[in-house]
Amino acid sequence: MKKTKVSVNEVATGSLTSRRSFLKISGLTLAGTGLLLAGCSDDDDAGRNVDPSQLPGIRNGVFDLGGGDAGILTYAYALEQLEADFYTRVVNSNTFGATFNGEEQQVLADLYQHEVYHREFFRVAIAAALEGTDGMLLPDLEFSYDSVNFSNRTSVLATAKALEDTGVSAYNGAGRYITNPDYLVIAGKIVSIEARHASAIRSLINPGSADFAGNDVVDGNGLDKAQKPSQIVPVVASLDFIQTAFTAQYLP
């Protein structure tokens, strides 16, 4: 009975806040914009998201993740909110101890820690970067997991695998759109943790196999997946876990 709450608008239009208001923000997007434009050789669509006025915030009654570095960080924050909330429910489940063996409990408890740290890091880091600009920090999203049975090992691990693989692909695909080198390094510090997680979950599901870095995610060049936000958001929406509407009109 639920309608799809997350939508992606392919057309990058909408009300734009003034350049003046953007310039107040402490270098979040401004410094890198010239670099990114210089780096576009021809058909690269990176230029689409660098309009400096595309800040996160409510547009037409729905929160939009925004564009540029602020948009990418807010996008990452949304994904981390989902992961953190999921593992919170996993470890808080009153059947946690009965559903998972000791090793699995340790892994899931660690993943809970890491993802909550990621979420809380983005909360404070984005708020600091957008200091003095009310309404630009993505609110706490609401989640529901009707398709997940938290008392079922297979169901939880399969969901974890999907979330971690999606996180890896999302960070890999978003890196090129980040213009501030410091933010790129931070994204790099996080994505390798997501990949370590994905590997561990996959090995719990199918130990002793090649699945930890399986041919379903690593191609013939030895490259992991990389998908841009406009590819990731529909995938995440299709899981139907996120119940709060938001848009991603300005992300590539």
């Binding site: 890999n172 080198p181 370590r196």
Partner: peptide, 24 residues
């Protein structure tokens, strides 16, 4: 590698494979 998004992406794609290996 920021000067070229495709090179950067390829490096990131190798980077996460190394992380999967490391974890395993």
């Amino acid at each position: 590698l920021m000067s070229n998004g495709d090179l950067l992406t390829a490096a990131l794609q190798i980077h996460s494979v190394e992380a999967r290996h490391a974890s395993q």
